[in-house]
Design a binder for these strands. Structure first.
Lengths: 115, 115
DNA sequence: TAGCAAAGCTACTAAATTCATAGCGTCTAG
DNA sequence: CTAGACGCTATGAATTTAGTAGCTTTGCTA
């Protein structure tokens, strides 16, 4: 699977606008989950496998490669870890946690839209 | 495809933590792209198809259903549009645009990691 | 120093998702 | 009527992901 990077054609943009490359990258299974989890600290391949429960090693490996190619994570002595860029991105993602918990959930209580 | 909602088992959380449900929902092809685009204003099914270029009507339709089930978009007389919740979510996504353009791209210039 | 366990994968097949294309039914304008 | 736009559905092929097994290396440790 081709790694989406700014400047090359990606899903949603033939010219590879950075935001579209980013949305393409993050819009793949487990990509955001991995970043979310790594913020708690570096982790090993098997550790991530356990965390993700249902991820296959094939997918985990390609996802890790993509995230490395895009400079969001790197390998350290303690396992995979977020880079500076990865941490910055996490911090942009973080507010979604509170929003999901405190705002989004309300939308399911209104007009009998049960989860 | 099962729509991920808070409170039910989703990818990454057997108990359906809201953030995991959200990451599951957004981690599907075109989901964030649709939200990103709809912020510019309501659009029709065919309009979205054109915008997304390579999306199939099947996928577009299931994605629209999921986003509607999760209260992020709705149908209006002018076509599909973001709900209040959808707009809120967009605003959380928005900073990623600048970050991608002004920060992330730099990571590809360092250490000859060409896009 | 032989054995064992953990880590980081690769290989392979099956299932699920997505794409690509064609076309149906409804509505509105001409 | 007829044509075109719209919102899809149907079908089959291609791509992605899951599931399981197991190889290779490293570091104990007995």
């Amino acid at each position: 699977m081709k790694t989406p990077k700014p400047g090359i054609p990606v899903r949603g943009s033939k010219t590879g606008q950075p935001i579209m490359a980013l949305l393409d990258l993050l819009g793949r299974s487990w990509a955001m989950g991995i970043i979310w989890h790594l913020y708690t600290g570096p982790n090993t391949f098997r550790g991530l496998q356990d965390y993700c429960e249902s991820i296959s090693p094939t997918t985990l490996n390609t996802r890790l490669k993509e995230l490395r190619d895009c400079n969001l994570i790197e390998r350290t002595l303690e396992g995979y870890a977020l880079t500076e860029y990865g941490k910055e991105l996490y911090e942009l993602l973080e507010p979604m946690g509170n929003w999901a918990r405190h705002r989004w959930v309300n939308s399911f209580k209104e007009n009998n839209n049960k989860p």
